[in-house]
Design a binder for these strands. Structure first.
Lengths: 164, 164
DNA sequence: CTCCAATGGTTGAGCATTCAATCGTATAGT
DNA sequence: ACTATACGATTGAATGCTCAACCATTGGAG
């Protein structure tokens, strides 16, 4: 394993990296706190409900749901179990492929999502979009798309992981 | 509590937001997996060791360390407890203020950090900086600084939380 | 000096996530 | 048809994090 010359970060890259880590950590923390306090769910669970709410019949296969929420199957399985306990999601067997399971948003789940949404969007706006110029929003979109395409999401559009 | 007209995200804002969430989630996941696999520590612990290694005497007060790692005091206390068990960090009482505690990087901790650093930097490069143009790096720095300043980090430089 | 609020830090309970192992089902190869 | 492999999903143990409660120390205010 020769060739051990590591290419360290340049000063401006290091500064960017530290700033990136700090900002994403604090932003995710703020999002989680707001949602936990006002809606009794972490941000990851909000995302699950939100993705379900936009899908036909408000339901998706577990593996599809895992893909669009950037979640491992295990993580999603635990999460859906908890959401099911809260009455926000319901599991349904898939007749065509009996390995598969659908997760479906319940009415209560939709209501919880609808109640949580305004506060969540306000928080996202306050901490992100209100601080950026329109140009910066476009730049951020291109930057995150580039990162996504390097992480195995073709085209960088997160919804591309969903089949046809 | 009137005025319940929520200002929802515009289509391009929504697309940016989804892309941002996906990219940051996957990137943090990739970082955590690589460090856990190759160095036996999550990314948050790497950061703790890294910040200590750059401080005078390789040591910092717990509350200072919490601030520069964007960590709650509780989180840091648990983390340092674990790092202490691994022999990577040592606690020392502060003579001037007996409420305060110093966390100091041990030689073993420094060695573990040094061993972990090349792989970590390679991962950061591969997933982030290698995918961005120099202009985009600058844009990302400005964007994250703007977000930071909105989250209570003056000037948006994460090191500004450190006194002196 | 005494009390009281603020500060620095720790603790324990509960929740979320990861990893590895497992189970049942589907699919392909022979 | 029979077997091996892959797939979709779940489980349990171990780890990390959050929240709230707590303890000890400090710095004032009266």
């Amino acid at each position: 394993m020769g060739g051990d010359e590591t290419r360290w970060l340049e000063p401006d890259e290091l500064e960017t990296w530290l700033s990136y880590v700090a900002a994403t950590t604090l932003l995710e923390g703020a999002l989680d706190r707001q949602l936990q306090r006002d809606a009794g769910m972490p941000h990851a669970y909000y995302q699950i409900l939100a993705m379900l709410s936009e899908s036909p019949d408000r339901s998706l296969r577990m593996s599809e749901l895992a893909a669009i929420t950037q979640s491992s199957q295990s993580r999603l399985s635990h999460a859906v179990a908890r959401l099911e306990c809260k009455g926000w999601v319901r599991r349904k067997p898939c007749p065509e492929d009996r390995r598969s399971t659908f997760a479906q948003l319940t009415e209560e789940g939709f209501a919880a999502l609808a109640a949580a949404a305004p506060g969540h969007v306000r928080t996202v706006r306050r901490h992100l979009f209100d601080r950026l110029t329109p140009e910066q929003v476009g730049q951020l979109r291109e930057i995150t798309r580039a990162v996504l395409s390097g992480l195995g999401v073709p085209g960088g559009d997160p919804r591309d992981v969903l089949p046809g």
